[in-house]
Design a protein around this nucleic acid. Structure first.
Length: 305
DNA sequence: CGTTGCGCCTGTTAGC
DNA sequence: TGCTAACAGGCGCAAC
């Protein structure tokens, strides 16, 4: 499932292959992926036609593509709104906001490519190629974000991610140590730090030698700081491997961990030997999902199990 | 406000 | 063989 490294690979692909071509048509083939757009499927499509994607940005697992201004025709077709252009502050450009959820893909396909089974939204570009949102489970989605070019309002609550140069590690440590929740839940809390999902959370915890059910407030500052460093490192390494293989037209998101899968030390390794101490790895259910850990390297807190 | 649990989705696989 | 149940899990939201 796409976490930060996978989404960053997609962002880079879009930056290389989807910008600066007029959007001539938008087909919403399933309503659900645009459920977060208040204007509905038709409003969503209408907002995008006649524009171009001008950039590809990311925060955590969210992606957004800033848009060129609406054409004069579309503007006058809409209501005669008075835009308070008071001189000093200029209105931010709009954006297409997206999340891949569990199984979302953004594909750039050439003219004539057959539709994917789970094709949900199609953007036809002026050269006939298409940007496609393909999503089997539809946990992901797209929406039009008015003025969202810099940072969409819809995701203002999402914390900076570990690869963001402005991510404040000390603040993260402070906040974690005030919370009673389990450290794994905190690592997955996109309001504290974004981009970490179930797989990289388990990997970071394994590297740090911490059990995911230990309460944040019971951890030493050093432990939390090192955990953040490990999460940063494991995602950077995954990005380096995931970023190695995508060709010109296919914006790689296979929904899997890609080439990094063979490098995983915790996730999916139930009953296999811990790569540090040889003990059989365990799997438990936590927050309605699987957690993998080494019972020796990652001692559970006394209160659990 | 912090904490915790749940529903949304579809396809694959395990088990009876 | 054919059915059901479990599983994959990010996110927003409800309830306390």
């Amino acid at each position: 499932m796409p976490e930060l490294p996978e989404v960053e690979v997609v962002r880079r692909g879009l930056e290389s292959h989807a910008l600066d071509r007029l959007i001539t048509r938008v087909d919403v083939l399933h309503e659900r992926p645009v459920r977060r757009d208040p204007a509905g499927a038709s409003g969503f499509a209408a907002s995008l036609i006649g524009r171009t994607f001008t950039a590809a940005r990311r925060r955590g697992k969210y992606l957004w593509l800033p848009l060129s201004p609406a054409s004069a025709a579309s503007v006058s077709a809409g209501a005669a709104e008075e835009v308070p252009e008071t001189g000093a502050d200029r209105v931010d450009a709009d954006a297409l906001l997206g999340h891949l959820g569990m199984s979302g893909q953004m594909l750039v396909q050439p003219v004539g490519a057959p539709d994917e089974k789970h094709l949900r939204v199609r953007f036809v570009l002026e050269d006939g190629s298409e940007l496609r949102f393909v999503d089997q489970r539809m946990f992901g989605g797209l929406s039009f974000s008015p003025g969202g070019a810099e940072l969409p309002d819809e995701i203002a609550h999402i914390a900076r991610d570990l690869l963001d140069p402005e991510f404040d590690r000390d603040e993260f440590v402070r906040r974690v140590r005030k919370r009673t929740s389990a450290i794994k839940r905190l690592l997955l809390d996109q309001n504290l730090v974004s981009g970490v999902g179930n797989i990289y959370a388990d990997e970071a915890l394994w590297r740090a030698g911490l059990h995911g059910e230990r309460p944040g407030e019971r951890l030493a500052a050093t432990q939390v700081r090192e955990l953040a460093a490990h999460a940063h490192d494991v995602m950077t390494e995954a990005l380096a491997q995931g970023g190695t293989s995508f060709d010109a037209l296919y914006v790689n998101v296979n929904g899997q961990s890609g080439y990094f899968e063979r490098s995983l030390n915790a996730y999916g390794r139930e009953d296999e030997p811990c790569r540090r101490c040889g003990t059989s790895m365990r799997r438990t259910s936590f927050m309605n999902r699987s957690s993998y850990f080494c019972p020796v390297c990652q001692k559970p807190p006394r209160t659990s199990r």
